[in-house]
Amino acid sequence: MAVVSENSASRGKSAAELSQELRAAIMRGDFVSNQRLVEADIAHDFGASRGNVRAALAELSVEGLIERIPNRGARVRSVTVEEAIEIVEVRGAIESLCARKAAEKITPESAAELKGLGRDMEEAVQRGDVEAFTRGNEKLHARLIELADQQTAAVTIARLQGQAVRYQFRLSTMAGRPQVSLPEHLAVIEAVCAGDGDGAALAMQQHLMSVAEAIRKSASSGPATRSLQKITRR
């Protein structure tokens, strides 16, 4: 649980601030799948009123990160392998649109930025630095969405990522996965920087279909299933 300073506790977090912190905690794996979320504990540990806790939990329920159970409170929602694959497939359609739009709006400055992210990811793979590669992956996807300037797509993707991020985090740490993922990302960068909308959309679609297939294979490989379904702390 989070450690709250006296000043923070006395001021009290708003429902929006609390939902943001809880969302981040769930995505980091600070709460395990199916873990109960007790209002009194959250109010104490995060420095918020019970009313704001209820409002924050209601928002996260709408996003699909938690579920409310009558007479039993709230708990972190468990996402099945099949649902995680569906989420990634839907992301493939939406992020392909974003890649296309980013290519249409690319500037020399943003192209240089994307190429820099690509170089950082290449260096991370060469060093065997999985965490740095994962950060670069997240930055690249986020930057492409920003460049696309599609607000509806951005909101939808954020919600989808929140639900499936636990699977993707485990996938990113599997041996050999960064080496597979890197050329897929570089293909997206190359197409976007060239202003090739069709190529960018195709490269992004192929990348996320590769992610979906990797989740499917990992989930059917015995022990990997358990490691995928378990939410672990970083």
Rank of each mutant, 00 (worst) to 15 (best):
V53T: 06
I85M: 08
R68G: 09
N52T: 06
E67T: 11
A55W: 00
A84R: 08
I85V: 14
A48C: 01
R50I: 09
E63H: 14
V62Q: 12
A48R: 01
V76M: 13
A55Y: 08
E82V: 02
E83R: 13
S49E: 01
S49H: 00
V81E: 08
S78V: 15
V81R: 07
R50K: 11
I85W: 06
S78Y: 12
R72D: 13
E63C: 12
E59F: 00
T80K: 11
I87E: 09
A56M: 06
I85C: 03
S49F: 03
I66A: 11
E86L: 12
R68Q: 10
I85K: 04
A84M: 08
V76T: 10
L57R: 01
A55H: 10
S78M: 13
V62I: 12
R54K: 13
A74S: 15
E67C: 08
V62G: 03
A48G: 02
V62L: 09
R75Q: 15
A48Q: 00
E82H: 05
L65W: 04
S78I: 12
R54Q: 13
A48M: 00
L65R: 00
I69G: 08
A56C: 04
A56V: 06
I87R: 11
R75S: 14
E63W: 14
R75F: 08
V76P: 10
A84C: 10
A56N: 04
R72K: 15
G47S: 03
T80E: 14
